[in-house]
Write a protein that binds this DNA or RNA. Structure first.
Length: 566
RNA sequence: UGGGGCAUCGUAUAAUGGCAGUACAGCGGACUCUGAAUCCGCUAGUCUAGGUUCGAAUCCUAGUGCCCCAGCCA
């Protein structure tokens, strides 16, 4: 194979799963059938996106199918609330399961029949050991387990007890059904794993018709088999479940799906486990599963990430079996790349400082042409109003600028984007606080539109908004959720101790171009020189828009100046 | 020797016995009406030690490091 690579960060060569599928296709399998099998017990996150892109992506690429299956085998943890959210997220990413939506609970009856079969063949037994006793009997990682006294129970007795378990004749925990495999196996999963537990709990779909529920290992592989899943893709921690997965299928003599494991996604400066995300939500560290700081699909969506950027990210990170932590900056790169291509440019002043153009006639107002997207001329131009009083960013003016400060300072010239070249002729400050309150400039009428007919070079170009017609908008600046790359690394400390106290800054008084005052819908735009922003879908109300910063623009100036400015 | 898995620039990933490549990050430059984008360049890697071979990231041997497993969770 040629080591070819394009310029988009992913090579044309296949990952090991696609390579295996291609080879399986050559040796007889007609088409690959995959599945995305979430448990409806939380919201999907970017790690699930990796799995979704893999499973649905393979189906698309190889002319196969990908099912959506809810792994709803534990009614004590699952909730119908999550189901719709999961479906919405998968759809939003752009994938379609058509009519192939399944539930593990659809197979409860079949699973029960399979269990009867194994009991009948002496390969499963009802155990009356308590949970604690089962743990003791299981042994440890380095010592073999001991066989339960129940292991010798007769087939007839097992059948009778198992049926009684189903009938609800027993209390929770009184009995379990176990596979009879090998209590001395080095693989803990093979030490007579529990197949069913008694749980007198109503199920969202099957209601009260079951008082026993199958365990993951018993339900998952058989569900795969029933659906004709050819390649059952899951994460690395299930690697040592594969012998059990294969054992059940072999004993039953049913269609043999093949489990293949890949490394789960880890992202720097965040956490990616439902348990920990749940904690952030339930303990109020964030506003909800869709808080724009969350690595959930719904959070990223609300943050302004596009489906394309997430899919591109998933393609770039690849599929391997190596534990890894992907740099958050790669995700940010993907969204910048996408939004740069499509986002409408706007001028918005986040931290307004008043500028008076002293030689510009009072009361005069004119409209100037601004380009909507320099990357895409088809997006056209718009008019922006200009007048004597403007706002610029407070940090675009310095009384005492450092070297290479290309913005406004006393005596210096700067270009107001799409407007005029102006020179700072003075400023006022609040005598009490020393804060600059107003900057005075003179404009050069010959530079209308921002060009310099005399050919003079002006290094700095800054954005501005006409004071009179500015819309007041709220802007939320988001930063990484945690202050350390891996919040879980320190075993001595709770990960929430590493939460970034500045992960959200709210700016209530930003000055925007008039058009932004009453916009609606999914609006991704670039605030020039500031970053990509999206209209918040939850907190925006008509006439009072709220914008979330998706990601800042790359900023070599703040890096160069040590982050002190800009 | 409890079982299973993984080791390639800072971070990811490619090379399947034949030039260690790509992306992100970093650094420098060009260009620029966004200190953006774009373009050009630079820095930087095969866990260790042996062995096989004309040739090893790749095969063999022995180490080392890291991850997962003792739920009636998934």
């Amino acid at each position: 194979m040629k080591p070819k690579a394009d310029n988009n960060g992913y090579s044309e060569s296949e990952d090991f799963i696609r390579a295996r599928i291609r080879s399986d296709l050559e040796s007889g399998i007609k088409k690959p059938v995959t599945r995305f099998p979430p448990e409806p017990n939380g919201y999907l996150h970017i790690g699930h996106a990796k799995s979704i892109c893999l499973n649905f992506g393979i189906a698309e690429e190889f002319g196969g199918e990908c099912n959506l299956r809810f792994d709803d085998t534990n009614p004590s943890k699952e909730d119908i609330e999550y189901e719709e959210a999961i479906k919405e997220d998968v759809r939003w990413l752009g994938f379609d399961w058509e009519d192939r939506i399944y539930y593990a609970s659809d197979y409860f009856e079949q699973l029960y029949e399979y269990a009867l079969q194994l009991i009948g063949e002496g390969k499963a037994y009802v155990d009356d050991l308590s949970a604690e006793e089962i743990r003791e009997y299981r042994g440890t990682l380095s010592e073999p387990g001991r066989e339960s006294p129940s292991r010798e129970r007769s087939v007839e007795e097992n059948l009778r007890l198992f049926q009684a378990m189903r009938n609800g004749d027993f209390d929770d925990g009184q009995y379990v059904l176990r596979a009879k495999i090998d209590m001395a196996s080095g693989n803990m999963n093979m030490r007579d794993p529990v197949m069913y537990r008694i749980m007198k709990k109503s199920h969202p779909r099957t209601k009260d018709s079951w008082s026993i529920y199958p365990m993951y290992d018993w339900a998952h592989g058989q569900s795969d088999s029933i659906e004709g899943i050819t390649h059952s893709l899951c994460t690395l921690e299930f690697e040592d479940h594969r012998p059990l997965y294969d054992w059940f299928i072999a004993q039953l003599g049913i269609f043999h799906s093949r489990q293949i494991e890949f490394a789960r996604l880890n992202l720097s400066y965040t956490v990616l486990s439902k348990r920990n995300l749940m904690k952030l939500v339930s303990e109020g560290f964030v506003s909800g599963w869709d808080d724009p700081r969350m690595p959930t699909i719904s959070g990223l969506r609300r943050r302004g990430y596009t489906p394309e950027s997430i899919k591109d990210f998933c393609r770039k990170i690849g599929i391997t079996k190596q534990d890894s932590v992907i740099d958050m900056e790669l995700l940010e790169h993907s969204v910048r790349e996408d939004l740069n291509r499509r986002a409408q440019r706007m001028m918005v002043v986040l931290d307004p400082l008043k500028v008076v153009i002293v030689n510009y006639p009072e009361g005069k107002e004119e409209e100037l042409d601004a380009v909507n997207n320099p990357e895409d001329p088809s997006m056209g131009k718009r008019k922006v109003p200009f007048s004597r009083e403007l706002f610029i960013e407070r940090d675009d003016f310095m009384e005492d600028p450092p070297k290479k400060f290309y913005r406004l300072s006393p005596g210096s010239e700067v270009r107001l984007r799409y407007a005029y070249i102006v020179r700072c002729v003075g400023f006022e400050r609040d005598p009490a606080t020393g804060e600059v309150t107003e900057v005075h400039c003179e404009y050069d009428p010959d530079t209308r539109g921002g060009s310099a007919p005399d050919g003079r070079k002006v290094r700095g170009t800054i954005h501005w908004v006409s004071a009179k017609s500015a819309s007041r908008v709220t802007v939320r600046l988001y930063d990484r959720l945690f202050t350390v790359p891996n919040p879980m690394a320190d075993k001595q400390r709770e990960f929430t101790e590493f939460l970034n106290p500045d992960s959200l800054r709210i700016l209530e008084n930003c000055a925007a171009e008039p058009a932004l005052g009453d916009c609606a819908g999914d609006i991704n735009c670039q605030f020039e020189r500031k970053g990509y922003f999206v209209l918040d879908s939850v907190d925006s109300v008509s006439g009072a828009p709220v914008f979330n910063r998706t990601v800042s623009l790359r900023d070599s100036w703040s890096r160069q100046s040590g982050g002190k400015v800009g």
